[in-house]
Design a protein around this nucleic acid. Structure first.
Lengths: 207, 207
DNA sequence: TATTAGTTTAACAATTTAGTTAAATCAAGT
DNA sequence: ACTTGATTTAACTAAATTGTTAAACTAATA
């Protein structure tokens, strides 16, 4: 038997709305009614589908963290050479952030308020986050030994990569004003930035 | 006549408490009682000193934004050569962020929810934020023409500097886990990072 | 046509929170 | 001792918010 609005279309609409509202306002400032309005339904139906605000939030938050970190882990563990790997990271992250602009500030803000969530989710995912850097570090040291890049601390390099790619999205409203861009302009700058960051890092690592 | 707890010590305690609570939880999640407890007083006295939550928040927020941007503007407008200027920016920002670790995520989160606040504060400060980049851009182009640095987009460079310095603080809980550091260890890494970032940028800019 | 599941409406209870107030208390200075 | 202003206590109001519920409605389906 098929629903009035066929299939699970409503559930999807709710999840999308919840994502939008939670992401833009954060958990504390998000109102169930905001989500209902955004989804084009009413509060009663919200609780009919998802029992409580907390349950909805946990769902959304896990999804968002997954999006934020998923691809990254795979690329970090891949067999590419270091510079190619860095390029892949940068392009992947910026592509994702262009599609989900408010993702990082949301995730990071909620993690800051509740840092143990990070560990819980990581455990759930099966791998400890510190593994993320292990292989990367080995590769960096190998390239240094081979003389292909100059002496560099892997952890510092990793933070630089992440900072250069993610920060502009976190500081989006400030960046837009300083650069005098609208949303379209901002996104253009970020697309150019894919190549810009990679070049920048390649030059910085030259022996 | 002097107060029970002499002078304006209480007002100071309240402001410090409000700073701490607002900064860590954000406006929406911050409770007046949290602030009162943190200040070692009760809610009634809070309203006796500062009429409302909004008033308190506006006060704190303006102060925080000022700290976040103040020194930066002066350095950007100064007469240093480009590389020295970059070094000064990095050292200044990291020094401030070590003293106020939760400052950027707080400011950026609240700005994201309320972007027009940025313009209001900027107007209040008398200068449009876009001026921040003007002189810097001229200098970058001059150095490029002089052949002292390679072809570089000033805006992209600026975002890279800010990203490398500020992002680790925004992502502090994640960084701590990935690097397996406690607070002291994290701060050590950030102190080392002052020189690390500057070196990184200098190499990246070499013709 | 009767059934069924999704949906709306509207009212409700319970809780949390901001903000107010009056009275009591306390710690100084005069 | 008296006064004064800061502070606490404790109660309160008003509003917002989450969550629940019963009844009505609707659209597809059997």
């Amino acid at each position: 038997m098929v629903n009035k609005k066929d299939d699970n279309q409503t559930e999807k609409a709710i999840l999308e709305a919840a994502d939008k509202v939670f992401t833009q306002k954060g958990f504390a400032a998000a109102r169930m009614e905001d989500i209902a309005n955004e989804a084009g339904i009413n509060r009663a139906l919200l609780h009919y589908y998802f029992r409580s605000k907390d349950k909805m939030f946990d769902l959304i938050f896990q999804q968002r963290v997954a999006i934020f970190f998923s691809g990254l882990g795979q690329i970090m563990q891949s067999e590419k050479r270091l510079l190619e790997k860095i390029q892949a990271i940068v392009e992947h992250e910026i592509t994702i952030l262009l599609a989900h602009p408010y993702l990082p500030i949301f995730v990071l803000q909620e993690l800051n308020q509740n840092p143990q969530r990070m560990l819980a989710i990581a455990e759930n995912a099966g791998a400890h986050p510190s593994l993320l850097l292990k292989k990367f570090s080995v590769e960096v040291r190998a390239e240094i030994k081979a003389g292909t890049i100059r002496e560099t601390d892997p952890a510092q390099l990793f933070m630089s990569i992440m900072g250069m790619t993610i920060y502009p999205f976190v500081a989006r409203p400030v960046v837009k004003i300083i650069l005098e861009k609208d949303d379209a302009g901002f996104e253009n700058v970020m697309r150019q930035r894919k190549k810009g960051i990679t070049d920048f890092i390649i030059h910085a690592l030259k022996p």
